[in-house]
Simulated scan of single mutants.
Amino acid sequence: MGTNPKTTLYVGGLEENVTEPVLHAAFIPFGDIKDVSMPLDQSTQKHRAFGFVTYLEKEDAAAAMDNMHNAELYGRVLTVNYAQPIKIKGGEQGWASQPVWADADTWFERQQQEEELQRLQVEHEATVKAAEEEGRKKLVQAREGETEDADDKMDPMAKAEAEALEENNA
């Protein structure tokens, strides 16, 4: 099952502008990369100054570690070690720098909460729009009641609809 930990490198000391493509480019000279990941801080949406590079071959990972440990990237000195898998609930749930209890379930809960918030926001916007529409209709109706020549103030569509209604009723 899980990946051989000897193919995954922990890369620490990343400058904040380093992105996954940058990390990939820095480590690809040593061999084929299977995966690059940089965990984001949920509150800032920035990475937490470390990432992981997984090679297909453990020899490539070893070469990358030998060459990239203490190397500079964007002016910062890198720390490159073999990543240690954290065993959670009997499986490898990825590489976390957080305590075990803060891991798997909460990420899904967080995703669900974000989706729920987005859904509520969309519903709220729809409600506000509907209320605004309703308000406009009431304004138009109020104006019609006030003035005899309301036809001139109605927009062409509403006027056409009103005339069609009158013809149908006639």
Rank of each mutant, 00 (worst) to 15 (best):
I86P: 02
Y74C: 01
E163M: 11
I33Q: 04
N4S: 14
A162I: 00
G90T: 03
T127N: 11
G12H: 13
A64Y: 13
L40Q: 13
I86Q: 11
M1P: 00
M1L: 06
Q121P: 00
R48C: 09
G12A: 06
W101K: 09
I28T: 14
H24Y: 05
G90P: 01
K138G: 01
V53K: 06
P85M: 06
I88P: 01
E20K: 13
D35I: 02
E114W: 02
S97G: 12
V128F: 12
H47C: 01
A49Q: 10
A158Q: 13
A63S: 08
F52V: 09
E144Q: 08
R110W: 15
R119C: 07
G2A: 15
E16R: 04
K137I: 13
H24G: 08
V53D: 02
Q84S: 05
D105S: 07
N17Y: 09
R48P: 00
D155I: 00
V80T: 08
D66K: 14
A160S: 09
L117A: 13
K87R: 09
Y82G: 07
D32T: 14
A102S: 07
A102V: 07
E134R: 12
E133M: 14
R136A: 14
F108M: 02
K153H: 08
Y82K: 13
E59T: 12
Y55L: 01
Q42M: 12
K153M: 14
A83M: 10
F27K: 00
K58F: 04
T19R: 13
L117S: 06
T44S: 15
Q121K: 15
E116N: 07
Q118K: 14
A61P: 03
A61M: 10
A104D: 02
D151I: 02
T19H: 07
K159W: 00
V22S: 07
R110Y: 15
V140G: 03
Q121T: 14
T54N: 10
D105H: 12
P29C: 03
V122F: 07
L139Q: 14
H24E: 12
Y74K: 08
G135N: 10
T7S: 10
E72W: 02
L56S: 01
L14T: 07
I33Y: 09
K153D: 06
A164Q: 15
Q42H: 07
G12V: 14
F52L: 10
P29G: 06
G75I: 04
D66H: 13
E123C: 05
R136N: 12
G75A: 12
P21G: 08
I33E: 04
E146V: 03
A71E: 05
D35T: 09
L120R: 15
P156M: 07
V100D: 03
E116C: 06
Y82T: 15
F27W: 08
M154P: 00
D105L: 06
E148Y: 01
Q141V: 11
T54I: 02
N17P: 00
T79A: 04
E115T: 02
A61L: 11
D103G: 15
L73A: 01
E132T: 00
D41N: 13
R136C: 09
S43D: 09
L14H: 03
Y10G: 02
S37K: 04
R76L: 10
L56Y: 10
K159L: 11
Q112M: 09
N81R: 13
A162L: 05
R119L: 11
M38W: 10
A71T: 04
A130R: 14
M157S: 06
T3F: 04
E144D: 08
A160R: 10
T3M: 04
E146F: 10
